[in-house]
Design a binder for these strands. Structure first.
Lengths: 157, 157
DNA sequence: CCAAACTGGTTTCATTTGTAACCATCGAAA
DNA sequence: TTTCGATGGTTACAAATGAAACCAGTTTGG
C-alpha cells in the first residue's frame, strides 16, 4: 500500500517479541529472578555466590578456575563470590602443594548445610516449572536447548 | 557404596549443568553477548538502548511505559535509555495533549537510519544461529520456548 | 471542592558487574 | 640461571543495575 508510515515499512522491521536472543534473555531473566528467591531471600546470596556454593556442593573440591569453567562465570565473579563465602565461613581455601598460585576450595560444615538445605528447593523449583508443560513441550525445551548449547556454548562444542 | 565423600552423596546433589534455570541463563547470556556486538561495537549502545530503538522502530511511537512492557525493562532502564537516545538526537519526545505526565517517543531520521542499518544484521544473526540446527531442533527450541513463556512470562499468560 | 491514592517518569544511592591492570608464581627456552 | 611469556587469582575503577524515594500531574471518593 502507498500510505504507510516510515516506521512500519514491512521488510525492514524486526519483531522483538519473536526475536530469539530477546526471547531467550527475557525467559532466562524471568526464571532466574524467580529462582533467586531461593538463595537470595533465604540467605542473601548473590547468583555468583549461589553458583559457587552449588559447584562446590556438587564436586566437593575445586579451584577458582574450575569453578569459573563449570558455572560460566568470569574469574572476578568467582573471586568475589569465594571471598564472600569465605567471610561467612561457608568455605575454606587450602593451598596447593605443588603450585602456590592455586587454592583448593571446599565447603565447611556450615556451607554444606546451607547447600543441602537449598538443593531440594532448587529441585522442586525446576520440577514445578516443568510440571506446567506437557510431556512433548518438556522434551521440546530440553532438546532445543541442548541443540543450541552444543552449537554455541564453547565448552559444549 | 559405603565410601563416599559427604559432598557427593547422590540424592542431595544438584547437577548444575543440567539445571534448567542455569542452562537457560547461560545460553541467553552467551547469545546475548554475541549479539551485543551488533549494537555495541558499531554504535556503542547498551542493551536497554538497543531495545528502546528496536521498540520504537517497530511501533513508530510509544510511551516510556509501553516501551517497558514491550521490551521487558524496568522503568528506570527505559528512562535512562530514552535519555541517552535523546542526547544522541535519535529520538524526540512529544508531550501528550491530555495527560501531561505522558510523553510520546519517536525516532528521528538519524535514529531510524541507525535502526534500519541494524535490523538486517539482527535478522542475519538470528538466521545464522538457527541455521546451525536441524529443522526438528529449530521447531523444538521454538515451541519449547513458547511453552515456557506462556507458562510464566506475565504478559504472555 | 478537596484530600488521598495512583500513575508516568526521573533521580538518588548502594550494589553488582566488566575491563583492565596488577601481583605472584610457574614453565620453558636461552 | 635468568629472563620472558603464560596462568591463578585479586584489585581498582568505571559503567550498568535495582530499589526506593521522589516529583509532577490525574483520578477517585467523600
Amino acid at each position: 500500500m502507498a500510505i504507510r508510515s516510515e516506521a512500519s515499512d514491512a521488510a525492514e522491521i524486526l519483531n522483538l517479541e519473536n526475536f530469539l536472543p530477546y526471547r531467550l534473555y527475557r525467559l532466562a531473566d524471568a526464571v532466574s529472578r524467580e529462582f533467586s528467591r531461593i538463595y537470595k531471600d533465604s540467605h542473601g546470596l548473590t547468583r555468583p555466590e549461589w553458583r559457587t556454593l552449588s559447584g562446590l556442593g556438587q564436586h566437593g573440591t575445586m579451584t577458582a578456575t574450575e569453578l569459573g569453567e563449570q558455572s560460566a562465570m568470569h574469574k572476578t565473579k568467582v573471586s568475589r563470590a569465594v571471598a564472600e563465602l569465605e567471610r561467612r565461613r561457608w568455605l575454606v581455601r587450602t593451598p596447593d602443594e605443588n603450585d602456590r598460585r592455586v587454592e583448593h576450595l571446599s565447603l565447611t560444615k556450615a556451607g554444606l548445610a546451607a547447600y543441602r538445605e537449598m538443593v531440594p528447593l532448587a529441585k522442586a523449583f525446576e520440577r514445578d516449572l516443568l510440571a506446567r508443560l506437557s510431556a512433548e513441550e518438556r522434551t521440546a525445551i530440553t532438546s532445543g536447548l541442548a541443540a543450541l548449547e552444543t552449537s554455541l556454548v564453547p565448552s559444549k562444542s
